[in-house]
């Protein structure tokens, strides 16, 4: 049986106390929320904190407040299941709820939290392996080694951004609160992530993500399209989040982020530029053609590599298809999403 290594387990009663403990132990300490990401990594010995700081007793990291007209704040310890089944979120943020509901499995969503999902470790099938396996390749750049086996001549790590909620939440311009030793700061998610498989979050080690802030719902619509092999369990190997506001038939604002195909949620900049101000209607051949042409621009920035499930070249080719579909989902008149694949 795979077992956890020994560690000291701290159970502080508040976020502030948790921050103090992590600050005191530095790199030796890690926060744990649902444990669905950290514990497998510890069992595989890719994470080896001597101190694990549980957030389960921090009541200040729980709960939801606010309303759709002004924006909703969700405590970081809210489980993905709670989000999935919250009637208000389902009605007012269906795109976000859909993204949360396609994370892994119902059992893992009962345990995993939104805070944990936002800070999910980047994934790579040279990294998400046991100690023994990694010894066979003399380890990799992200853990214990020096070479990135995905691209050995590259100076960087290519581990993949694999959270389902991140691309969508970036697209809708959600933000988070980070609590540090010297107080809180609010950071837009779009500014939180970095294009690096190792240093993928721009926050100090002891900073604790305490809450997610969803923007006010003032007419925008959002969608998440996930590519994976199976309708359950699997991480996205491409995950497109799109957010669109219309001014009549015209695109007022559009944002598209591509996850699961690079170390961060990649902005589909060119696609967005091409469609800004365009006239788009649902179920309209000309609009579809316009979207398809713009989505084609998402091919180039997509960094699908051979370190996830499914063929990298095909995943890259699927990016424009998924981008187009995600944008079309956001058009007025598009039916609500129920699928679990594609």
């Amino acid at each position: 049986m795979l077992r956890l290594p020994k560690f000291s387990y701290h159970r502080p009663a508040s976020g502030a106390e948790a921050v103090r403990i992590v600050a005191a132990h530095g790199g030796e300490a890690r926060y744990v929320a649902g444990g669905t990401d950290l514990y497998p990594n510890m069992k595989r010995r890719v994470q080896r904190p001597g101190h694990v700081v549980a957030l389960s007793r921090c009541q200040d990291l729980r709960g939801m407040r606010g309303e759709a007209r002004s924006g909703v704040t969700i405590g970081a310890m809210t489980t993905l299941s709670a989000i999935e089944h919250d009637p208000r979120l389902r009605a007012e943020y269906p795109g976000f709820v859909h993204a949360a509901s396609v994370v892994s499995t119902p059992l893992l969503r009962n345990m995993g939290t939104i805070g944990g999902n936002l800070l999910l470790d980047t994934r790579c099938n040279y990294y998400d392996q046991s100690h023994e396996w990694r010894e066979s390749i003399d380890f990799c750049k992200k853990c214990d080694g020096s070479t990135c086996w995905v691209a050995p001549s590259s100076p960087r790590c290519w581990a993949v951004q694999s959270s389902d909620t991140v691309p969508l939440l970036c697209a809708i311009d959600a933000s988070v609160t980070l609590l540090g030793a010297d107080g809180e700061r609010r950071v837009p998610l779009r500014a939180l992530y970095r294009d690096d498989g190792i240093d993928f979050v721009q926050k100090r080690h002891e900073e604790l993500l305490t809450a997610l802030h969803l923007p006010a719902t003032n007419g925008w619509r959002a969608s998440y399209r996930k590519l994976r092999r199976r309708g359950s369990f699997d991480f996205p190997v491409l995950g497109v989040g799109a957010c669109l506001s219309m001014d009549g038939d015209r695109v007022a604002e559009l944002d598209v982020r591509i996850g699961g195909a690079g170390s961060w949620p990649i902005p589909a900049q060119k696609t967005v530029e091409m469609l800004r101000g365009a006239v788009l209607r649902f179920d309209d051949a000309a609009s579809d053609e316009l979207i398809r042409a713009a989505a084609q621009e998402a091919y180039k920035p997509t960094r699908a590599m051979d370190n996830t499930d499914l063929d990298a070249h095909w995943r890259k080719k699927m990016a424009p298809v998924f981008v187009a579909r995600a944008i079309r989902d956001c058009l007025p008149g598009a039916p609500p999403r129920r699928d679990v694949l594609g």
């Binding site: 092999r229 199976r230 309708g231 369990f233």
Partner: peptide
């Protein structure tokens, strides 16, 4: 996780 065995969804 990565050796794909069909779930109830497939």
């Amino acid at each position: 996780l990565d050796y794909k065995s069909p779930t109830t969804m497939e």
